[in-house]
Amino acid sequence: MNKILITGASGFVGQNLSDYLSNRKFEVLPLSLRNANWKNGLKGDAIIHLAGKAHDTKNISASEEYFEINTNLTKDLFDIFLESDSQLFIYFSSVKAVADRVPDTLFEEVNSEPQTPYGESKRQAEKYILSKKIPNGKRVFIVRPCMIHGPGNKGNLNLLFNVVKKGIPYPLASFHNERSFLGIDNLNFLIKEILENKEISSGVYNFSDDEFLSTNDVVRIISYVLDKKDKLIKIPKAIINSVAKVGDLTKLPLNSETIQKLTENYRVSNKKIKSAIGIEKLPNTARQGLEKTIKSFIEV
């Protein structure tokens, strides 16, 4: 399996994955879905579908945009894949396609309850793919990554990075949470394994690093990389929640939504994909991945 078509190849994940696979002797070709020419036939051994409308955290995008791009375009691409000679289809969905909040740990078999147009649009695409009979000789994967990060992509880490860099104390240390992250190096490794190992069966797979980290852990890691003393302050939760209510009314940065995002649990299990590959650990720990990403912020 040498010729790999990648949609969304110009994005953060697409660029990293393209470089990674090219360095391992795969022939990687970007597949643009911006014009209708791609419907004339897919000439590749595998298709990795990354293109989509990303989650808009400011909630200003129209719901229809998510469904037009994330759902309908995926349906069209998948239909053509089923009729093509391509042997492998990898669809990048999201953990948000099944759950916006995770009280315990997220496994693949969880009942889907997306809470946003983004999550619902991804879930509708998943349901369509899963409803189709897969021809003999083909494999189909739905990948659900959690928060992806890496050099060149600050993502949600940017807020915490700036807090630590400016020497501002982190006031939410009294909250303990556990979150999953996904370093780009581990993501690349997992995709390579799927491409190379035909024994890995079609299915839905979560992608995440092995370890869970608390937001306090992340602050400590950022402080370590910046060679600063971590300033974790344990203000009582009742006081923080009172300040958040004021923030809700006055539009201060520290409001209920911000606190929820910084302190909630979001644990994602990667046991299924590791079991399918036959490994106990991914190449990089969650801490190693975060340290690499944080170092790249400094070098910019």
Rank of each mutant, 00 (worst) to 15 (best):
D248Y: 04
G41C: 02
K122C: 06
V95A: 05
L187I: 07
L21V: 01
L182C: 05
I47H: 11
R144H: 14
Q15M: 09
G14R: 03
N16C: 11
L160F: 08
N70R: 02
R267Y: 01
S22N: 15
I47Y: 09
N156F: 09
V300R: 15
G52R: 01
L5K: 13
S18H: 10
D79P: 00
L282W: 02
D248F: 06
I294F: 14
K228N: 07
D76F: 00
N162H: 12
L213Y: 14
G137V: 08
L33S: 03
D76K: 12
P117F: 01
S296Y: 13
G183P: 04
E65D: 09
G152E: 02
S94R: 08
L159Q: 09
N206Q: 10
R24K: 15
N216V: 14
I129Y: 08
L29A: 15
G152W: 08
R123A: 04
S256G: 07
L182S: 09
D248L: 08
L160A: 08
K39D: 08
K133T: 15
Y224K: 15
L254P: 07
N158P: 03
I298V: 14
G183F: 03
I233N: 02
G150V: 07
K281T: 12
N158R: 10
H149E: 00
I142V: 15
Q288W: 05
A62W: 03
N177M: 00
D217T: 10
K237G: 05
S112R: 15
D230L: 09
I294L: 10
T250N: 08
I279D: 03
N16S: 12
K234V: 12
K292F: 00
L5H: 13
P169V: 06
T285S: 15
L33C: 02
P135K: 05
N2E: 13
G155Y: 04
N156V: 13
L182W: 01
S112V: 13
E108I: 14
G11H: 05
I277M: 08
Y205P: 01
S84D: 11
N153H: 12
G152T: 02
Q260S: 11
H176S: 14
Q87L: 13
E280S: 09
K251G: 04
I90Q: 07
K138L: 10
K154R: 14
G203N: 06
F67L: 00
S63E: 13
I259Q: 12
E64S: 14
I168W: 05
L252D: 09
I184Q: 06
E280Q: 06
T74Q: 04
L29S: 11
S94C: 10
I240N: 01
S32T: 14
R139A: 10
G52Y: 04
R144Y: 14
R101V: 12
L213A: 00
W38V: 03
A125M: 02
G247M: 00
P117N: 01
K58T: 11
A62C: 08
L254I: 08
L29V: 15
L190M: 13
N241H: 10
Q260A: 07
A99V: 01
L172R: 07
L29K: 14
K229V: 06
E199M: 07
K53R: 09
N23P: 10
M147H: 08
S223I: 00
N216I: 12
L249Q: 05
Y266H: 06
